[in-house]
């Protein structure tokens, strides 16, 4: 499988999602390789695998319907970082085909509500960033889906880690609402920097810039 994984990674770098199925076949074996790319050391490949899951949700839901339960469970797997990329995938799949992840929305929400998993000293920041990002994808255009978690989400704009503040800001910009604008205004001078995946690209961005763009988006 190693060879196919590397070749799929190459296609993902080039954003050639349909070609992955054309080259390796529209079957679960291909999804299996995609699953393992969620653990790729190269962050862009991991994120593009997330995007590919979203693309499949829109184009070939039958290929990934069985993956959703696994993703949900992996967020609670006690071993290692099995849950890496799971929240992001649930968010992206939900954005493209909410019918596939109805139960997954609650799991993502529960994850961020649990202080054990999301607050220092025990939290895994990478997983938390994925959950914040997923909430943005799930709530974008459909704020009611994540409305109940808004107070918790707002609180992360005051987090000591800039990456957490930046992702919370981005998420609030997707979801919107008067409280979101208020918090975003407070971040427009934030000098922190984070890596952020948006529009299929992974870029380093200042928290202030994320907040300003989010506000512009919400005021449009």
């Amino acid at each position: 499988m190693k060879g196919s994984r590397q070749a799929i990674a190459e296609l993902l770098r080039a954003r050639k999602y349909p070609e992955v199925l054309v080259t390796f076949g529209a079957h679960r074996k291909t999804v299996r390789s995609l699953r393992s790319l969620l653990y790729a050391e190269e962050a862009l490949v991991k994120w593009r695998a997330v995007s590919m899951f979203g693309w499949l949700a829109a184009e070939r839901a039958d290929l990934i319907a069985h993956e959703v339960d696994r993703l949900i469970w992996s967020l609670n797997d006690e071993a290692g970082s099995i849950g890496r990329g799971a929240a992001e995938c649930l968010g992206e799949i939900g954005r493209k085909n909410i019918g596939l992840v109805q139960h997954g929305v609650d799991v993502v929400i529960h994850y961020i509500e649990d202080p054990e998993t999301c607050r220092p000293p025990n939290r895994n920041t990478e997983i938390l960033l994925g959950v914040l990002w997923a909430l943005g994808r799930l709530g974008g255009g459909k704020p009611m889906r994540v409305q109940k978690v808004m107070p918790v989400l707002l609180s992360f704009t005051e987090d000591p880690e800039p990456a957490v503040r930046g992702h919370a800001a981005w998420s609030l910009g997707q979801i919107g609402g008067p409280e979101a604008k208020d918090r975003l205004n407070r971040l427009t001078q934030d000098a922190g920097v984070t890596l952020l995946y948006e529009n299929d690209e992974l870029n380093e961005k200042a928290v202030a810039a994320i907040a300003q763009e989010a506000l512009a988006h919400l005021n449009r």
């Binding site: 290692g80 970082s81 890496r84 054990e116 025990n122 939290r123 895994n124």
Partner: peptide, 20 residues
């Protein structure tokens, strides 16, 4: 003991079991 947060090393899914 409790499960607590997920832990691991970058690039690996397994190999570490979080205990708190």
């Amino acid at each position: 003991w409790k499960h607590g947060g997920l832990v691991g090393v970058i690039g690996y899914g397994g190999g570490v079991i979080g205990r708190y």
